[in-house]
Amino acid sequence: MEKVSINDLNEWTYPVLHSGKEWYVDFFAYDPARGKMRRKKFMLDRYKTARAKKTIAAELIHNLVAKLKNGWNPFVNAGRTRLFTPWAKVMERYRQYLETAVSKGQLKEKTAYDYRSRLRQLELYQEETGNTLGQVSQFCREWAVDYLDYLLYDKDVTARTRNNHRTYLSTLGAWLVDRRYLTQNPIEDIRMLREEEKHRDPLSERQLQQLKEYLNEHNPYYLLACLMVYYGNIRPEELRNIKLGDISISDQKITVRSEISKNRKTQSVGLHDEIVRLMIRLHTFDGTADQDYLFGRDLRPSREQTYINHFRYEWQKVRQALHWDSRFQFYSLKDSGIRDGINAMGLIYARDQARHSDVAVTNLYAKPSHEPHEESKHWDGKL
């Protein structure tokens, strides 16, 4: 018997009739208490004739298959069997519920459309990260927190958008509780973010130097990613989709294609001298093709792009090595780059480099100084 994952509690084999000295129907199902597949046997010897045994066996097999497909497990408490219903099957019923609720006027079409859209986002997350839900019991607080962090840090959504997804998850959790798939809503104690809340801080000049020195020695390929975010203001999800053909060394620019850009526009940003120098040192364009991703599985150019959370996982290692607080995140590099770009080159430059639609958005990154600017003491006034 092939080994079954402990997360695959809905695994089972089709019931089979055995005849001979003993007549019985048996099948295997996953026993969570033992952590392995276990045989379940139904004896038929009390029926006197072969014909009766075959008739009963056929009916028994039919009923068992129906129950097993519906998530029943003979080795799990009867009151908890719905916990192990396959997630895909439950979502199929959920979609049917949305359809019916709209047709009966219990739900607005716009609301149902929004729910289906958010459900599709959940499915895309599972496809991209491999953090898949096998059965309903896996829809838990930890899974939901990972998903919301993915939206906030990898997809770069606002606190408001993240909160909207949290509200949807809670609505979905309540539906699952109502239908007895779950005993309690796992989303209830996940807090909402204040929508003006800053969930990360920019890096100081000293921290930026620490980062550069550390990565130059330990991981120069990840340093290239950090420089791209700091100088190019490129978002992590855009970064993993950049191909070598999007980069022009002669023009010193990177083109962020509409299909990978957050704002769905094709725009170019300047390629800083620091980035060019590091690319040359790392031989980034040697033996590569335009269709290769700049950051592959090992953060080197490759036909296969890096996985969805790679930049964030590498950042956690850096943060631990440098003993930084959790408020300093990979995306803090973009905050720091925009701040320093405003100070060095002005607001309009920073707006265009960050690809913001309005300087008001860019200006949010410019924190007021509590010390007087040196220029205020010496500029050439007209009075």
Results as ranks from 00 to 15, higher is better:
Thr13Ala: 12
Tyr14Asp: 11
Leu17Ser: 02
Ser19Gln: 12
Ser19Val: 14
Glu22Cys: 09
Trp23Ile: 00
Val25Gly: 00
Phe27Leu: 14
Phe28Thr: 08
Phe28Leu: 15
Ala29Lys: 05
Asp31Phe: 03
Gly35Pro: 01
Lys36Leu: 07
Lys36Cys: 06
Arg38Glu: 12
Lys40Pro: 05
Lys41Met: 06
Phe42Thr: 01
Tyr47Cys: 13
Lys48Arg: 15
Lys48Asp: 10
Thr49Gln: 06
Ala50Asp: 12
Arg51Asp: 02
Ala52Arg: 13
Ala52Gly: 00
Ala52Pro: 02
Thr55Trp: 00
Ala58Thr: 12
Glu59Arg: 15
Leu64Gly: 08
Val65Ser: 04
Ala66Gln: 11
Lys67Phe: 00
Lys67His: 08
Lys69Asn: 13
Phe75Asn: 01
Phe75Arg: 02
Val76His: 04
Ala78Lys: 15
Gly79Met: 00
Arg82Ile: 02
Arg82Phe: 10
Leu83Lys: 13
Leu83Met: 12
Phe84Ile: 06
Thr85Cys: 13
Pro86Thr: 05
Trp87Ser: 10
Trp87Gln: 06
Lys89Gln: 08
Val90Phe: 05
Met91Trp: 02
Met91His: 10
Arg93Ser: 15
Tyr94Met: 10
Tyr94Thr: 12
Tyr97Leu: 13
Tyr97Ala: 11
Leu98Thr: 07
Leu98Glu: 09
Ala101Thr: 07
Ala101Glu: 14
Lys104Gly: 02
Lys104Val: 11
Lys104Asn: 10
Gly105Lys: 15
